[in-house]
Design a binder for these strands. Structure first.
Lengths: 246, 246
DNA sequence: AATAAATATGTACTGAATACACATTGTTTT
DNA sequence: AAAACAATGTGTATTCAGTACATATTTATT
């Protein structure tokens, strides 16, 4: 009896140990693009019966031999063929019951791509772009993940020159403003927007004009070279500003 | 030979599968307090030989039956007896080689506690407070984790009323300013600091005075009830402010 | 009573955020 | 070719927050 109990305890401990290593970790990518004047997200049809008809984010388990922050690059490369994109870690989601087929903790990243620049193999993979505003429900907790990433994106574009990853190399101020309006979900005043962008000093005047637009063409700009960084970085605030004293 | 190869492949796949579930996930807590006019962090002596003499953050593996965001509460309760504290998820760290004894991905949280309010069982656990400014090196990648959490804390205190979790219920404006100076690592102008705090509208004038100070006593304040929230929350920006138009 | 040390407070300046209107340029239509 | 249309491009006045800065007041100490 005593022996029995001991055996049982050992058994439980063994199971328990196994279970500790029975939590898988995945990454999920919220891939934004800007198309048809709308902020859109790349989704895949869920292959799980529980979520039939629903879409989900692109994700995969993290491999034992890759850095966590490398996993989203691999996922994107594998699933879409895309490379060299802007990626940012947002948050890790780990509710017990967030995944139907076991305990999976996931780290969410958002990514920004220029749809025209990337040759994306979408159709054969059941991958589709969906306007963010029209997405009401996703598989798993992916709607919450999407919302977190969108919120982070909104915070970032106000302060850092990241939105440009969604645009082609050359763009007009109108396009830029429409992009900001799509991301933020509000309308902006043209003069104030231009003033603020000018103040940031992010742009280079290309001394070129739009063409093939059915109206008076606008000037073309591009992001200054110094501000182009696509890698995941520990965004350092340049200096501690905005303080109560000199 | 063919058969052999196949066997080998199967073997590899089995190992590979096992290895997928051989990534453990942990949480690490950066626990801040404010003591002796310094921002301090709770550390424990590393029990690993590789890091003998070094300190590390408080952490533990996430259990299979607990939410990720619950794990840091458990860790803090277990290791320090503390309860009901402010916690915020910061970032997840997952380099392949970040942990010496295996593949462990860790989610970092920071926590703010009022040292006077909490009865903390420190000594018997080899736990010690260390002034943030004096910490040069920690075990694992914990120095990087600490830096990330400090940076996040600095961002947060400028915008949200979180620093008050480090102070007792009642405090003077001098104490509050000294706290901000410790967190931000800079000196602040008294008049401008008070103006800004007043503008935030966070404080309630208690119509009481300091006592037992060896100088002219200052007024006492407390954080308004409406701003007291200690749980991990998905910090929603109240409204989208600071935009280019009305 | 005098001194020391900390609290408490106000003003002027600068710069960013915002509200707001008109002239210009190129395309399209008549 | 002229007129109408549609989008680009630009400036000013106001408000408000951020910052620099000095003096009077209150309490404890000597």
């Amino acid at each position: 009896m005593d022996k029995n109990l001991k055996l049982k305890t050992a058994e439980i401990e063994k199971i328990s140990h196994l279970e500790y290593f029975n939590i898988a970790i995945s990454v999920d990518c919220v891939i934004f693009c800007y198309q048809d004047k709308k902020l859109q997200v790349l989704l895949i049809k869920s292959d799980l019966e529980e979520f039939s008809g629903l879409y989900s984010l692109l994700g995969d388990l993290v491999r034992p031999d890759e850095d966590l922050d490398s996993a989203p690059y691999r996922v994107l490369k594998q699933r879409t063929g895309m490379d060299d994109l802007y990626l940012e870690q947002v948050r890790t989601f780990g509710s017990i019951d967030r995944h139907v087929s076991g305990r999976v903790i996931t780290t969410a990243y958002y990514s920004l791509i220029d749809i025209k620049h990337q040759k994306l193999s979408v159709d054969q993979n059941e991958l589709h772009w969906h306007p963010v505003k029209e997405i009401k429900k996703l598989a798993f907790d992916h709607k919450i993940i999407l919302d977190s990433c969108l919120q982070r994106l909104r915070e970032q574009v106000m302060e850092f020159p990241v939105a440009f990853n969604l645009l082609p190399e050359k763009f007009s101020l109108r396009e830029l403003q429409e992009l900001y309006e799509s991301i933020l979900g509000i309308n902006l005043d043209r003069r104030n927007f231009r003033k603020k962008i000018a103040l940031k000093g992010w742009l280079e005047d290309l001394e070129e004009m739009e063409n093939e637009v059915p109206h008076r063409p606008g000037k073309l700009y591009s992001l200054k070279q110094a501000y182009r960084k696509k890698k995941v970085s520990k965004k350092q605030k340049p200096v501690l500003e905005n303080i109560f004293s000199k």
